[in-house]
Amino acid sequence: MTATAVRPTSLIPAPRAAADDTVPLPAGPASTACRAVAYQRVLHQLVRRELGLLADLGSWAPADEEERSAALAGHAELISRVLLHHHTVEREAVWPALLRAVPAARNAVEAWTARCARVDHMLRDVVTAARQWQVAGTVPARDAFASACRALAEAVEVQTAEEERTLLPLLGEHLAAADWAAIAASSHCRLSGPEQLFVLGLALEDSCAGDRVRLLEGLPWSVRTAWRVYGARRYRAAVVRLRGAPPAA
């Protein structure tokens, strides 16, 4: 199978309900029955981990090694694209759907909007710092990139923790499955075939068993096949090149 078998998709893979979700689950924030909540938590986990790794990898990378700075800059740009798209979908579709069901959530959504505006600005700063490092190839430019990644990782940690505390329980309780299906179907993040498989690997890497099932079931058949045939192998190789160590799982 060639790479062209994986068509660029308009969707970042979103977890679907698995068979074990038919078993009654406890109500409240601990419940993962809502597909939207599962997707949010997987995406948050991915981004938190990768931003922290970028800060660490950047801090000890050779400042003047073009191949290394290009690899880290490319990874920072990809993670930034994924998170910026995620925030756009939340801002334009997820939270409006939640507010239609729970008008009282407006204050929490407004607080989220303010926090995410800062995070989005910092994401663009990281991409700019990465490009400047590529051009300059100096220790100060490398350190500026690593510092920007560290600050962003800390901001995202705070922002996602607050979102998971205040908004995800409401999402799990009040967002209708049909609303989430419509949001997922209309969410256009332009990932190429290789990017799609790489992001899939990032999402699967340290997800729990239930989330892995949901994630894979939410993918087109062609992407699941590509992942099984060669995607997992290529993901492992890409992670070793990027981190100098294999994936967690």
Rank of each mutant, 00 (worst) to 15 (best):
P169I: 14
A181D: 15
L84G: 02
V139K: 08
A55C: 12
C189N: 14
V223H: 07
L25E: 10
A17Q: 14
H121D: 13
T88M: 09
S207T: 03
A148D: 01
V82S: 07
A93P: 00
T166Y: 06
A178R: 15
L215T: 05
S69P: 07
A146I: 03
R224M: 09
R41L: 11
A27W: 00
S69L: 06
P103R: 12
T4R: 09
A153L: 03
L175K: 08
L167S: 07
W221Y: 10
A153R: 04
D120I: 14
L168T: 14
L99G: 02
Q159I: 05
Q40G: 08
V82L: 15
V223R: 03
T2M: 10
W95K: 06
A33N: 02
E162G: 04
A33C: 03
A93N: 04
V23K: 06
C208S: 10
C208H: 05
A141P: 06
A178T: 15
L54H: 05
V240C: 09
T32E: 03
L99I: 09
A111R: 09
A146F: 07
W180R: 03
L197H: 10
A237S: 14
P140Y: 09
V139F: 04
V47C: 08
A146C: 06
L219S: 02
V6T: 14
L46S: 01
G231E: 13
G137V: 08
I183S: 07
E50Y: 09
E90N: 15
A111T: 13
I79V: 13
A36Q: 01
R214A: 11
A232Q: 15
A178K: 15
D20W: 11
V223Y: 01
S59T: 11
L54T: 02
W227K: 10
A14P: 04
P246N: 00
R118K: 06
P194F: 11
S187V: 07
A114W: 05
A19Y: 11
L167R: 07
R35A: 12
E77L: 08
L197Y: 12
G201K: 10
